[in-house]
């Protein structure tokens, strides 16, 4: 009896893990990507003059630098490495497979 219970428990855990990997993580990745996209847009509004877009209040944005310094470098790398935004979006919604 005890043995059957343990086996069932093990299979149930594997079953749950499979579904988390197959559906949940994927879905959450979409949400997370969207959040990062919005944040990247925000960074562009805040520090656009960094890459040549004039900003009406770049002076006031300076005080955010100490708070966002850690996000700044990855952001710059991300926007510089963007090659084809359409493909990126398509990949996000599984259109590229």
């Amino acid at each position: 009896m005890e043995k059957i219970k343990n086996t069932l428990k093990k299979w149930w855990r594997l079953f749950a893990l499979f579904h988390q990997g197959a559906f949940l993580d994927r879905r959450m990745a979409v949400v997370r990507k969207e959040a990062f996209d919005i944040n990247d847009n925000l960074m562009l509004l805040l520090f656009g003059d960094f890459i040549g877009i004039p900003n009406p209040m770049s002076y006031y944005m300076l005080e955010l630098l100490p708070l966002m310094a850690d996000e700044l470098v990855p952001w710059e790398r991300r926007i510089q490495n963007r090659k084809f935004i359409l493909a990126e979006k398509a990949a996000q919604y599984d259109f590229d497979t």
Partner: peptide, 18 residues
């Protein structure tokens, strides 16, 4: 990062409106 930031501050310092 501090070097990056220093550059950024200099740009903002020069920009119109500051």
């Amino acid at each position: 990062i501090v070097d990056e930031i220093r550059r950024q501050i200099e740009i903002a310092y020069m920009s119109p409106g500051s």
